[in-house]
Write a protein that binds this DNA or RNA. Sequence first.
DNA 1: CGCTGCGTTGAGCTTCTTCAACGATCGTGG
DNA 2: CCACGATCGTTGAAGAAGCTCAACGCAGCG
Lengths: 228, 228
Amino acid sequence: MKIVEQLARVPLFVGLTDEQFEQLAMIVTDQDFRRGQVIFYDGDEGVGFYVVLSGRVKICKVSSDGKEQILHLTGPGETFAEVAVFAGTGYPATAIALEKSRILFVPKTAFVELIQANPSLAMNMMASLAKRLRRFSTMIENLSLREVPGRLAAHLLFLSDQAGGADQLELDMAKAQLASLLGTIPETLSRILQRLSSNSLISVQGPLITILDRHGLEDLAVGELRLE
Amino acid sequence: MKIVEQLARVPLFVGLTDEQFEQLAMIVTDQDFRRGQVIFYDGDEGVGFYVVLSGRVKICKVSSDGKEQILHLTGPGETFAEVAVFAGTGYPATAIALEKSRILFVPKTAFVELIQANPSLAMNMMASLAKRLRRFSTMIENLSLREVPGRLAAHLLFLSDQAGGADQLELDMAKAQLASLLGTIPETLSRILQRLSSNSLISVQGPLITILDRHGLEDLAVGELRLE
DNA sequence: CGCTGCGTTGAGCTTCTTCAACGATCGTGG
DNA sequence: CCACGATCGTTGAAGAAGCTCAACGCAGCG
């Protein structure tokens, strides 16, 4: 598929004129990454940002003893590392492809010119940054104020909302990844899923989860319910 | 002091023309808050953002059982709640004045017009959002990957950096506030300060802290050092 | 003087992690 | 086609970190 067509499907770029899409297409490059391949490391000089065309990428922090916390998972049409364009140098986290992925790179300097000449692009960018700030806020809230069962409950409800409120949902990532996203480890996640199950809040079959007691999950998410 | 003069000292607004300052001054209102007074609650309809003229404001999340996590502390010249202007409705956290404060309110709709007509203002705003995203990233990293001693060590080093690398520093907030900022409780913070002291990393006299072993603190911050 | 906010200390307990082992699944190469 | 290794998920037992609850000291201030 032509680059321009793919650009047109990226939410950040909606509202650009054809001419601007052409300009954008001129400055970007694309690249394939294998599963597990590092796109950049935390602290690397930040020379631009990225757009996922296909595949999935995790943005994460890694501690000196190898534990990781996923900040963000991106899929097709989503962007990451925009922060590097606007503040500081150095990427704020590490980006790793979770599967074979095609990624677009947008160099910083050329993009800054584009955005300065285009208020609607700037507005999109601010909306995107603001949305991520929101997500980070709730992430901080969850890590600090909720225990793992509450975080998990909140996440399941979030997934259900995204699926239009369905009670059946399929985890879109490995459980080890989910654990890292929730700020815990696979063992603990496994046990908590078990506990939610035996409390009849959900039922689990592999990556398929059925919400049995939505109200109970909501109570759990806000800390109003204690598990057996 | 005239509003326009105060606006000129806000980093977000650097680079505006005199005319734009006048426009801005037309749309803002200012208001005084007492110590402890709530400026807005998490989830309140977000109709604009704020600039601290004097005093201090904490932005925090509060759990149902009353625990709080401070996301951000603002002082004179700093802004908060910009997120509400660009994404979603509803403030993402609660804002409370820590002391008698004079706060400027900038209504959303008028500001959006201003920013669309002014690329440099937009760039400032994106830089501000990006900077906050960075801080939130490290906050998530700290909460998830570091234990309290490591978070405290990192924070003390950060304060020292801000003070130009001085070894003597004074906590600019109550210890209970610091605890909430670090994602812990006053009791734990007190004990950890004690431990850092008896490990000869710092010495503590009330809100005055002296760094005795900077290298040790750095090791602690990255998890390379275990306390006795 | 008494009150209130703040900080500290102690004891007990909950939650989560660590470490180790094991089963299942899947893709690959022999 | 089967065997193998790798990845992933689960389970158990033990330990560490931090929280809860309660009590107390201390300063500032009405």
